[in-house]
């Protein structure tokens, strides 16, 4: 009995360590974001006085708000395009026979591993020339290209698991092809599509290098760029609280999302990479 208790205590400690590992840096930045200007440098782990001042400040400067809008817009459009194109390609890869399938899969894998910096110089030059520099489209295109392998891998792994015969069975039971597709296939495929949409959105939301290189003004600058390059009103005072608040704003929605769709994301991440 006591050995069971000891094991129980051991696992509690181990679990606690993992939780602390994951939570401490997140808590730290949240804590910073609620500290007032006077206490931000006190190094306390818990704010001695809580304030929303930092959050008010970042939304008062139109600069962060527009970056946030750019991030959301670019992220959503990228997700929509990548998921639609990815679904089409993944369906073909999972269910149809065609030549060049392996070529496509190999090329997608290659792009997934591609060092993005290798594209920054040429893309920068090309986009300036054709007027895509510092536009939404100028970011959506490269994001889509880099997200497609992720979408294709995740989706084709999901599609391979769908029992497609159910479609035939439904039609035998009198459903029309459209009905069979809508009532049988769509519900089965939806989890995979949602998963890949989440992964693609996180990718686009997270990117710094491309956004930093291919934008220059608030027309298309995304939130990570705004935060990384945030300088305060005076250059002698580091706007720690405001930066922390901005970081929290762009992080918390994603974390809630990730925790909410936890199972799907784990399945998607491992299928996308492991099955690759």
């Amino acid at each position: 009995m006591s050995s069971l208790n000891r094991r129980r205590a051991g696992w509690t400690i181990v679990n606690l360590l993992v939780v602390l590992y994951a939570v401490i840096p997140l808590w730290w930045i949240i804590s910073l974001s609620f500290k007032s200007t006077g206490t931000v440098t006190d190094g306390n782990f818990i704010p001695t006085s809580w304030t929303l001042e930092n959050y008010r400040n970042i939304f008062d400067t139109g600069f962060f708000t527009s970056a946030l809008i750019n991030s959301i817009g670019i992220g959503l459009i990228t997700t929509a395009i990548a998921v639609v194109l990815g679904t089409m390609a993944a369906y073909a890869i999972a269910r149809l026979e065609f030549r060049g399938k392996k070529l496509l899969v190999g090329a997608a894998l290659l792009i997934a591993m591609f060092p993005q910096i290798s594209l920054v110089t040429p893309l920068f030059n090309i986009e300036r020339r054709i007027g895509l520099f510092d536009t939404w489209l100028g970011l959506i295109l490269p994001y889509t290209a880099f997200a497609l392998p992720l979408a294709i891998y995740t989706l084709s792994a999901f599609f391979r698991e769908i029992p497609w015969d159910l479609e035939k069975a439904a039609m035998m039971d009198g459903a029309s092809p459209t009905q069979a597709f809508r009532r049988v296939i769509v519900p089965l495929a939806a989890p995979g599509v949602v998963t890949s949409a989440i992964l693609v959105f996180i990718f686009a939301w997270n990117d710094l290098l491309l956004a930093l290189s291919l934008t220059s003004t608030d027309r298309a600058q995304t939130a990570p760029v705004a935060i990384a390059n945030f300088t305060g009103v005076s250059q002698f005072e580091e706007p720690t609280g405001a930066i922390a608040a901005a970081a929290v704003v762009i992080t918390i929605p994603i974390i809630i999302f990730v925790l909410f769709f936890q199972r799907r994301i784990v399945a998607g991440l491992t299928s996308g990479a492991v099955k690759g």
Partner: peptide, 14 residues
């Protein structure tokens, strides 16, 4: 999944 979900820039700032 928290570290995975955090935006890299935000984590780096932390």
């Amino acid at each position: 999944l928290i570290p995975y979900g955090i935006v890299t820039v935000a984590a780096a700032i932390s």
